[in-house]
Amino acid sequence: MSRIDRRFAQLKASSRTGLIPFVTAGDPAPEHMVALMHALVDAGADVIELGVPFSDPMADGPVIQHASERAIAKGVGLVDVLRWVAEFRARDADTPVVLMGYLNPVEIHGYARFAQEAVQAGVDGVLLVDCPLEEAAVLQPLRDAGLQQILLAAPTTAPARMAQLCEAAEGFLYYVSFAGITGAAHLSTGGIAARVADIRAHARTPVAVGFGIRDAASAKAIAGFADAVVIGTALVERLAGATDAADIAARISEFLAPIRAALDAH
């Protein structure tokens, strides 16, 4: 059983909704990245989503774009991200880590080389935003190495295609709550509850919902019908500009604590 599968099994056994924070690797401070990851776990993260910075993040809004630009300006690349995961693993053998990003950095690194190094570092899954199911053949070396492929599903996904995604899903299926980019602010939970319920009934994996969740209230609304919630933009925004490890940990705790409490109270 993979680390991700084990984590979701534990959540289910204890009837808890998973909390999946997203941060851009290398932002706000590359030198404190490992400490930042531990702080996420201390604040109640069940899975960590680590954004691999990319120069042209087409599916992201301005907050995550700028975080990527800051990290790239500091020289952060895939090699650093893998090193941080390996260092994180030295103290945390249980919390799953998913790398989220775009295809080009992985393609240039080399699929087979990436697969081997990522598994060795302790990465559990990858979500490559611009690699839909139709193009996923290039990711075979990743699957062969045991990295789980996290797939996106969207409000625009047609029913027949949704069935394919439900069948192909590994780890968890990431449902994008609205058609748009990360960080846009129009979450309407009413419309998505039925769709997520339907997906949960058919998917081989748990379903996480992301995009538009930014605080305890919106997280709680989603918790009613999802296995996990993903929070990215609001957290990245909160961390921007922090320079020392204590400040980073304090901001994370302050931001995630009410969300964790809201999920657990559900």
Partner: peptide, 20 residues
């Protein structure tokens, strides 16, 4: 039919754009 010119082309976009 997949928009491929040999090794090139294709549809490398996020899921939301696959339907449109």
């Amino acid at each position: 039919v997949h928009g491929r010119f040999g090794d090139y082309g294709g549809s490398y976009v996020a899921e939301t754009l696959m339907a449109p």
